[in-house]
Design a protein around this nucleic acid. Structure first.
Length: 554
RNA sequence: GCGCUCGUAGCUCAGCGGAUAGAGCAACGGACUUCUAAUCCGUCGGUCGCAGGUUCGAAUCCUGCCGGGCGCGCCA
């Protein structure tokens, strides 16, 4: 019996009660959930449905709860139902009804947790989007980990997802990058507003290797070469570090294409048709204040050039035209000032900004050692890069550490903690479960012990307190996936996996899977092997959503 | 000044309007002849920043205040 099935049972019991008593069934919700009480004395699961419906139905909650409890108590698999407090229903399941979950999970395998809760949604997810003027730095790293995890999560929830990296290789930042490379190649110091760090020298040298005569060209031609080749090399390097980090983008979108295809003009025309464009001081404006922005925004400057915001509009329109009904953009906290104009822009196109555009803001990350901020990059000066992270923590620990916290929280990651191979380190705590479950299965196989046919599985033998706790925890996984996807918050998955890990370790220390010594293999051992393998499935699936490996040995 | 955001145990952080607010670390005390001790068990630890409001019920929602971070260009 999964929590979802139990919740459905509770709801149908409520419907039966309403019908017998002649109550208005329109007061019933479309769906309900059961929760796991913190206090084990409150049963396996609890429902607050009677509390919620009491007022609507005009029946005292406790009275409603009593009727519901009676009805529910007759359902197969339900062992007992108690009423507590103002009208909580505390439900206990038969060991057998709880235990079949182990078999269901094993049989579902990789698909366990794939809910379909977002089926039919077409979501565009943009993250990192760093310009190719340097290595991906600390803020981008957080989004690389969180954004990639979110894309996996959304897919697991059934959504169609397109991941996207937006970059600009024509703006003034790129000009400064080219000037910095040029200066470096000539042995001159970086320009006032240019880029520093050793990587500039490395890229400059690499450009000269590809274009040996570059310094003999006139300055405009030389700059153009440094710009073109430098961007190409830098971008290749960014893609390479992202690939090594396990992050792949479906689309790398170049701002220049928007200009070349006339999409900025098209966006402007579209906004004008909607009646939100006006001219003032020689410039063309979008009246974003109409939809709550602080001030109106310029799309085309008085000198005829487009603003960056105009490209944002065109890019948004482009995504929408490609059929994405939800445009999700992940930005650093320093960009939160864009939310107002972006939401207003969406509304100016006639969209619903609360549905079609989501902007997720991530707080900053500090890498610390002994409480002191780390400035460790040899290549990028004071900036900590993706490569620095991976060098210091490894891919698994970096991804896990960054995906473990709410993006709303600024985080301080202590290198000492995340490189330690002990249970201080949450990623090892979770991964160790994977290793243990593999090891248990290996050991069992060595003595010829096997799960056997699913039909012979004895769920009623999983009656131990620790088995019950583990089963209930494993049963929460689909809800965790659905909720994390809905909230766009992958950190719930990590926290949940830590709960699973705790439940498994406690099970492991009290319940033998493989018989001790030369003891014979019993049906209990076999039932536990199913539970062991179900845990491995959940841990592997969950870590997979975070892009973290589930090692067979540690 | 205006806006966004955060404030929960000594530390790092969870916590969907539900019951006695949790986890890990730190501190202290236990458990390996056993399927991996990278683990488990126990003790200690709280004015959920403050004050109101909404209701059967608020750490959670609303308002105000205090404190930290960030943002407020015809820049990109």
């Amino acid at each position: 019996m999964t929590p979802a099935k139990l919740a459905a049972t509770v709801l149908s019991a409520a419907r039966a009660v309403f019908e017998t008593r002649g109550l208005d069934t329109s007061a019933l919700p479309e769906a309900t959930t059961v929760e796991r009480p913190r206090n084990p004395e409150h049963g396996d699961y609890a429902s607050t449905l009677a509390l919620q419906l009491g007022k609507k139905a005009g029946v005292p909650p406790r009275e409603l709860a009593a009727a519901l409890a009676e009805e529910l108590g007759r359902q197969p698999g339900v062992k007992s139902v108690e009423i507590a407090g103002p009208g909580f229903l505390n439900i206990r399941l038969d060991a057998a009804a709880a235990g079949v979950l182990a078999r269901d999970i094993v049989l579902a395998g990789e698909s366990y947790g794939h809910t379909g809760s977002l089926t039919g949604e077409k979501i565009n997810l943009e993250f990192v989007s760093a310009n190719p003027t340097g290595p991906v730095h600390i803020g981008g790293v957080r989004w690389a980990a969180v954004g990639d995890a979110l894309s996996r999560l959304l897919r697991a929830a059934g959504a169609t997802v397109g991941t996207e990296y937006y970059f600009n290789d024509a703006g003034s930042q790129i000009d400064r990058f080219a000037k910095s490379l040029y200066a470096s190649a000539k042995g001159e110091p970086a320009p006032e507003d240019g880029y520093g760090g050793e990587y500039i020298a490395e890229i400059a040298t690499a450009v000269q290797a590809e274009a040996p005569d570059v310094l003999k060209l006139g300055e405009p031609e030389a700059l153009e070469t440094f710009r073109r080749v430098g961007v190409e090399l830098m971008f290749a390097e960014i893609k390479q570090s992202l690939t090594e980090f396990g992050v792949h983008f479906d689309t790398y979108f170049n701002e220049k294409d928007l200009h070349n295809r006339g999409e900025l003009q098209e966006a402007l025309d579209r906004l004008r048709e909607q009646g939100h464009i006006f001219e003032a001081d020689g410039a063309t404006w979008l009246r974003t204040t109409e939809f709550g922005d602080d001030k109106d925004r310029v799309l085309r400057k008085s000198d005829g050039d487009w603003t960056y915001f105009a490209a944002d509009c065109a890019y948004y329109l482009d995504k929408r035209k490609r059929g994405f009904d939800r445009v999700v953009i992940m930005l650093g906290a320093d960009h939160h000032g864009y939310i107002g104009r972006m939401k207003a822009m969406s509304a100016c196109f006639g969209d619903d900004p609360s549905k079609n555009l989501e902007i997720l803001i991530g707080q900053l990350v500090n890498l610390v050692r002994d409480g002191e901020p780390v400035r460790m990059s040899k290549r990028a000066g004071t900036v900590v890069t993706l490569e620095d992270f991976v060098d210091a923590l490894g891919v698994d620990a970096t991804r896990y550490a960054l995906a473990r916290y709410s993006s709303d929280s600024p985080i301080n990651l202590d290198i000492a903690v995340w490189t330690r191979a002990t249970n201080d380190n949450p990623v090892y705590y979770v991964q160790y479960v994977a290793a243990r479950t593999f090891n248990v299965a290996r050991q069992a196989a060595e003595i010829g012990m096997a799960r056997g046919d699913a039909a012979d599985f004895r769920p009623d033998l999983l009656g131990h307190e620790k088995e019950n706790e583990l089963l209930k925890t494993l049963g929460e996984y689909p809800d965790v996936v659905a909720r994390s996807a809905q909230l766009r918050e992958p950190h719930h998955v990590a926290r949940y996996l830590e709960e699973v890990a705790g439940a498994y370790h406690r099970f492991y220390s009290e319940c033998r899977v493989k018989p001790q010594g030369d003891d014979p293999v019993t049906e209990v051992n076999v039932a536990r092997l199913w539970l062991n393998d179900a845990t491995r499935t959940v841990i592997a699936n969950g870590l997979g959503l975070l892009g973290v490996s589930a090692p067979e040995r540690m």
